[in-house]
Nucleic acid binder design. Structure first.
Length: 388
DNA sequence: GGGCCTGTAAACATAC
DNA sequence: CGTATGTTTACAGGCC
């Protein structure tokens, strides 16, 4: 079960067509180049490989994979049953499949405030049981240069703006606000921003409304036809840095049984840190202690986001009744992104998924195991929305 | 090695 | 006039 993700790289039989749209992974920005051909309308990105069916039919699986799925079926199918050996894993998903007119929508950016692996994740406090959670400084060097190109930074800034358009100065401010590196960087990067704006076909200059004009210069927006490519580059960069760096190179400890939950994992492959990742469905998931005491009633410690630490399997229970109808909708549901957050509590690391992605564990493993697996498994967009 | 992408620097023009 | 903005050119480094 714990090599499932990697195994599924080659498990094309698990993949069933779910989206009429395919595209290639260009991986390059449309910088002075033609737009990436997605062959799709509404910016729907996907990969040549189709996503996994949900849930995969056990009969269609290789023995090892089927065994894996069997072991993880509780979480995969979000129903209550006995999970890992001696381990109680429950996940009830009440999320409905969201309308995703635009699966690449980044509206969540300004809601979420963060899609960056090197940044704190303050919005996670929407988890009711994590009210006391206080973001800490990222462990990664906050002052190091971000991995994102200027085009990506500009793209994020514009997408994060309420009107999807920003003057240059606001782009500066956004970058400085979100990437402390640029607070102290010399001014040359601003020149680079302007250079990118002017040179890249991805961005378009809009004349300000003269009647409401305040400030110098024009407004800049993202050209819709280049948006999928920008999004793809951003996603790949984000994925690479959050997955490969945060997970794949980390040691694995299987010690301890927080909340009194048996620390199983004897059968786990020690080499696969994701095998021991606790998956939650944010924001409507509760971490449960062994006695079913909600996490909020028995918090072991504040969670710290983005900790590159150890991973172990833990109990999780998701109570449908605990989810109010008006609970904040995960902005990621419309984004086409699957944002994976890692929160650490002692020796445990929790992987928090958007609440309504309805991803099953094997899919998640594929998404995280490595970049190649991600590409082989299909885009997050299809996984999130294309199969229902 | 060549092409492309990206970052950086610089010069210059224009607008505020 | 100073500063901000926008355009353009040039060059270097990395990657494929």
């Amino acid at each position: 079960m714990f090599s499932l993700g990697r195994e599924m790289e080659n498990s094309s039989h698990l993949l069933s067509p779910s989206s009429p749209c395919t595209s290639t992974f260009g991986g390059s920005l449309p910088f002075s180049s033609s737009p990436q051909q997605t062959g799709c309308s509404n910016d729907h990105l996907s990969l040549p490989l189709s996503p996994i069916s949900f849930p995969p039919s056990p009969s269609s699986l290789s023995p090892a994979t089927a065994e894996s799925l069997h072991s993880f079926s509780p979480l995969s199918h979000c129903t209550a049953s006995q999970g890992l050996e001696g381990q109680h894993i429950q996940c009830f998903s009440t999320a409905t499949v969201p309308d995703q007119d635009d699966l690449t929508c980044l509206n969540w950016l300004h809601q979420r405030g963060n899609l960056l692996p090197l940044q704190p994740l303050p919005k996670i406090t929407t988890l009711p049981q994590l009210e006391s959670f206080t973001p800490t400084q990222p462990l990664s060097p906050a002052m190091s240069k971000p991995p994102y190109s200027f085009s990506s930074l500009i793209f994020m800034a514009i997408e994060d703006s309420p009107d999807k358009r920003f003057p240059v100065k606001d782009i500066y401010d956004w970058i400085v606000k979100n990437f402390p590196y640029y607070r102290t960087a010399t001014g040359g990067w601003r020149n680079s921003v302007r250079h990118n704006l002017s040179l890249s076909k991805s961005f378009r200059r809009i004349q300000r409304d003269k009647s409401q004009s305040v400030g110098k210069g024009s407004l800049w927006c993202v050209c819709p036809e280049y948006r999928p490519a920008l999004l793809e580059v951003l996603r790949k960069t984000h994925s690479y840095h959050s997955t490969n760096i945060n997970l794949l190179n980390k040691p694995v400890l299987l010690e301890g049984a927080e909340f009194g939950v048996p620390a199983v994992c004897d059968s786990m492959e020690m080499s696969d840190p994701l095998s021991h990742t606790l998956l939650l469905s944010s924001p409507s998931t509760q971490i449960m202690a062994a006695d079913n005491t909600p996490f909020s009633e028995n918090p072991p410690c504040p969670l710290t986001p983005d900790h590159e630490e150890l991973v172990t399997m833990e109990s999780v229970e998701y109570h449908q009744s605990d989810v109010s109808e008006d609970m904040e909708k995960d902005p990621l549901s419309d984004s086409g992104y699957i944002e994976l957050h890692y929160y650490e509590s002692h020796q445990y690391q929790y992987l928090v998924l958007p609440g309504d992605t309805e991803l099953d564990l094997e899919t998640v493993e594929i998404l995280q195991l490595d970049a190649e697996a991600q590409e082989a498994a299909g885009s997050l967009l299809d996984l999130a929305g294309g199969v229902y």
